[in-house]
Design a protein around this nucleic acid. Structure first.
Lengths: 355, 355
DNA sequence: TTGTAAGCGTTATCAC
DNA sequence: GTGATAACGCTTACAA
């Protein structure tokens, strides 16, 4: 069996308390003793039993991370970052997939709490849940902070992206490049925070006096999920949808996509149709997926600063764990437009501008 | 504070042991009592403290998952699957990123063990570590199973992919489609299990009497990692590399890529150069990434059956946790070639075959 | 069928 | 400075 402080105490012919204190560098213990104990502990390969420790002081140095579909890149990037940050802070991460469903989220949260997490970070929005539902269901007994792409409409600790701002920047940037006929492509999949992405588009277009209400939106079929949660698109349908769009909007010079996957899809379809990007049409994505960096052309996209969000959320959580309060607090993280090669000056303007 | 069995016992004017047993449905307890206790527990919102339970019976119902770069799709898919399977089995998952480095792996493993995981699943190979190093470093005190793409050269519980078999299938399939000039593209990045992928290629080519030794291999620059572990490619270099290849290998009709990312990259570059896939050149990937399903054309690829691997690994782990033994055991999971549109009969043959 | 009491490995509160 | 001793919340012989 594993070595315990008791074993060490026995060998050293001292008491458990002394060993315990010495190992934690208690200044009350003589320096010599501390040294002796630590040496012995090392020799015997002692490793503290964090469970026992947790039982007495009520802290496990573990946080729980609840998230919908781990396989999504934004999710796994978040998780990776959280793992790193938590580790630096001496915390472990217990993760659980919620499939983005409220009841599973609640269930898993209770699981994790029972397992003794000190705090909870929950990622995902629950679009079909009512505020009342959230209020009652999500009444957790440990400090909790929500993260995601939309504001949760209830008093809680949360950090979320301002998704609109990046879209606005994108529209502004396109405008300055001479674009006037700008459209937004989207796939209305479940749990997707579309409204905030749309609203940025609406606003920015309106500000410029451009046509960008609902008419500026162009919908794609969302495909379907396989049993592992991977989303598959019906590329033939999407292809013809893009084709149709081009026919019906011959004057469109720029396309904003509601997410990078769609943007990459559309990009490849355009290229196949002989439409040059960005010479003929500029394309912009949303999310900041890694793959946008090496598409051809590399995709301009609105990036969600995941690291910043995770940092903020973790700090918030640490804080409320320390003070054991869970007072409502909100932090907004701005998204930002990242310029790459897929967006360019419109041709018309190019021809007008002399070399 | 949280409700404990003691609180319930007090209210019911009975003993803690009765409550404890009743809650766990011990047949020794009168059915009426059980009912009464459970009802009371429910009413008081009792939730068992798994930590306390763990302290006494030495089991936390938690497993640890160690893995390199969480952000990779294969990794996150593995994690997602593991989370689901574990939950079904009543287990939680404590995850930690190892960056694919041996010392961090060891460190994290000890962390997790201290936190009380009942077992460990470790993903990742350690190409630069010697067998001796692994032997000494990886001497864990809890049941452990390794998973990954290569066989660990030491006695342990492991399940790994037979990566060669899928490559062979791919080559066979291409051969049957009339391809003779088949080449393999690869990026030699750290920790990548290239040899097994290569060996499948070598063997299959040799079996068919085709030129497929080292000369059949064509190397791409591996790009670089950002601080988050995302890999970025220098697309311009890759592009010109592909171009150069086409010039120097005008008779090549099929390209096998060592991973899907590379395949998708090459695919887009070929399309941009006006090379039609699959009409002019067939392309095959490796991994089974989701994105291969909706590239244009959808990519034929060698898929790694992640679900199968995780299932196997979990079962193995459960087994050795139950019997508390850690006897060496190996399971091999075959990869398999998945046919999609990116590979097709060679043109020559097409012309010969009458309509 | 139920209750008593010991113990899991640690920390914390007292005395000494 | 150090050592008993009582928690922490639960399980499990052993008694009753």
């Amino acid at each position: 069996m594993a070595v315990t402080i008791y074993d060490i105490a026995e060998v050293l012919e001292t008491s458990r308390s002394t060993v315990s204190r010495a190992l934690r560098n208690d200044s009350k213990i003589a320096l010599a003793t501390r040294k002796r104990v630590k040496k012995q502990a090392l020799e015997m390969g002692y490793r503290p039993n964090l469970l026992a420790r947790a039982l007495v002081n009520g802290k496990t140095q573990t946080i729980g991370f609840l998230t919908g579909s781990v396989i999504l890149e934004v999710t796994s990037a978040t998780m990776a970052k959280l793992g790193d940050i938590a580790r630096e802070g001496g915390y472990g991460v217990h993760m659980a997939d919620t499939k983005g469903e409220l009841d599973l989220t609640v269930k898993q949260a209770h699981e994790l709490i029972a397992r003794g997490v000190d705090g909870l970070i929950i990622r995902g929005c629950f679009p079909e849940a009512t505020v009342e539902q959230l209020q009652t269901e999500l009444d957790f007994s440990v400090p909790t902070v929500f993260i995601g792409g939309v504001r949760m409409p209830l008093p809680c600790q949360q950090v979320y992206y301002d998704q609109a701002i990046g879209v606005k920047q994108a529209v502004d940037s396109l405008y300055e490049l001479g674009h006037r006929q700008i459209h937004m492509f989207f796939m209305p999949w479940k749990g997707w925070e579309k409204e905030t992405r749309f609203s940025g588009f609406y606003e920015a277009m309106a500000e410029r006096g451009l046509d960008g209400g609902r008419e500026g939106l162009y919908e794609f079929p969302p495909g379907h999920l396989d049993e592992d949660g991977h989303r598959f698109f019906d590329i033939d349908v999407c292809f013809s949808r893009t084709k149709k769009f081009l026919k019906s909007h011959p004057d469109c010079t720029a396309i904003l996509c509601s997410d990078d996957k769609l943007a990459l899809l559309v990009l490849s379809h355009l290229v196949h149709m002989g439409v040059r990007v960005p010479e003929d049409i500029s394309v912009v994505g949303f999310d900041g997926m890694a793959a946008t960096a090496y598409s051809l052309p590399p995709l301009s996209t609105v990036v969600l600063p995941i690291g910043e969000m995770v940092h903020t959320a973790f700090d918030l959580l640490m804080d409320s764990m320390k003070n054991n309060n869970n007072q409502p607090k909100e932090v907004v993280i701005p998204s930002k437009f990242l310029v790459r090669r897929s967006a360019e000056q419109v041709r018309i303007r190019k021809e007008v501008t002399p070399g």
